[in-house]
Computed example of a mutant assay.
Amino acid sequence: MRSMPTSHWTDQPNSPASSGAGWSAVARFLHWTIAVLILAQFVVGWMAVSWRLSPTKLDLFVWHKSTGMLVLALVVVRLAWRATHRAPALPSSMPHWERIAAHLTHGLLYVAMIAIPLTGWVVSSAAGVPFSIYWRIPLPSIAKTDQHLAEVVADVHGALGIALIVLLVMHVAAALRHHYIKHDDVLVRMLPWRRTSR
C-alpha cells in the first residue's frame, strides 16, 4: 500500500480515492476524546435513570452532568480549532449530493453535541438542584426554578439524545462505506494512530 501525504494543510487531491490530506493530531485527539465521552454518556445516563434511588444514583447523575459539561467545553474548543484550521479536502470522486449530505450531517452533529448538554444544564437549573462539576466546580443556574420547565426540557433532552444516536449511526456507516466500499481515505485519515507531518 503506497503512503499518502499527511500534511494537514494540503488541500489538493492526489487521486479519486485520496483526499491528499490528513487531520492534524489535535483534531484527531478532540474527535476521539469527544466520541469516547459521548459513548460513556449514553451508558452512564441510562444507568442514572434506571438505578434505584440511592447515593449511587445521585453520584451517577453527577458523573453524567459533569461529563456533559466537559463534552460541551471540548466541542467549543473543536469548533474554534475548525474555524482557524482548514479541513482536509474531500475525495474528488465524491458526488455533489454526498458532499452536501456530509456537511449537513456534521453540522447537525455539532448542533446536537451543543444542544444536549445545554438542555441538561437547563433541566438541572429549573429543577432547583445545586450542582458542582465533578463535585468541585459550582455550575451557575441558567433558568429559574420551574418544575414544569424542567420536565419539558428533560423530554427535549431525551429526544436530542435519540437524534444524536441516529446521527452517529449515520456518521459511522458513512465512514465504513468510504473505507470498505469506496476504498478512499476518509476514515483512515481520522484514525488516532495515523501520523501527520504537523
Rank of each mutant, 00 (worst) to 15 (best):
L90A: 12
L90C: 08
P91Y: 06
P91A: 06
P91I: 10
P91W: 06
M94I: 12
P95S: 11
P95D: 11
H96G: 11
H96D: 13
W97G: 13
W97T: 15
E98L: 15
I100W: 01
I100T: 03
I100Y: 03
A101F: 10
A101N: 03
A101G: 06
A102T: 07
T105P: 00
H106I: 11
H106L: 12
G107C: 09
G107K: 06
L108K: 01
L109H: 08
L109D: 04
Y110V: 05
Y110M: 03
V111Q: 01
V111W: 00
I114M: 05
I116M: 11
I116V: 14
I116R: 09
P117N: 00
P117F: 00
P117W: 00
T119H: 05
G120D: 07
G120P: 11
G120F: 10
W121A: 03
V122M: 11
V122L: 13
V122H: 12
V123M: 14
S124G: 10
S124L: 07
S124T: 14
S124F: 06
S124E: 12
S124W: 02
A126R: 08
A126W: 09
A126Y: 07
G128Q: 02
V129S: 06
V129Y: 10
V129F: 07
P130D: 08
F131I: 14
S132P: 00
S132M: 02
I133K: 03
W135L: 11
R136D: 08
I137N: 00
P138D: 01
P138A: 04
L139H: 07
L139W: 05
P140C: 04
S141G: 08
S141W: 04
A143G: 04
A143L: 08
A143R: 03
K144F: 15
K144D: 14
T145F: 09
T145A: 08
D146R: 05
D146L: 04
Q147G: 08
Q147M: 11
H148C: 07
L149D: 06
A150P: 01
A150V: 05
E151R: 12
V152I: 13
A154P: 07
D155G: 04
V156Y: 12
V156N: 09
V156T: 12
H157K: 03
G158E: 02
G158M: 01
A159G: 14
A159M: 10
A159H: 11
L160Y: 07
G161K: 00
I162D: 04
I162K: 06
I162Q: 04
L164P: 00
L164F: 05
I165V: 12
V166D: 01
V166E: 01
V166L: 04
V166Q: 01
L167V: 06
L168K: 09
V169Y: 03
M170G: 07
H171P: 09
V172F: 15
A173R: 02
A174R: 05
A174F: 05
A175K: 08
L176C: 09
L176D: 07
L176G: 06
L176A: 12
R177E: 05
R177H: 08
H178K: 13
H178E: 11
H179K: 09
Y180G: 00
Y180K: 01
I181T: 13
I181P: 09
K182F: 15
K182N: 15
K182R: 15
H183K: 15
H183S: 14
H183C: 14
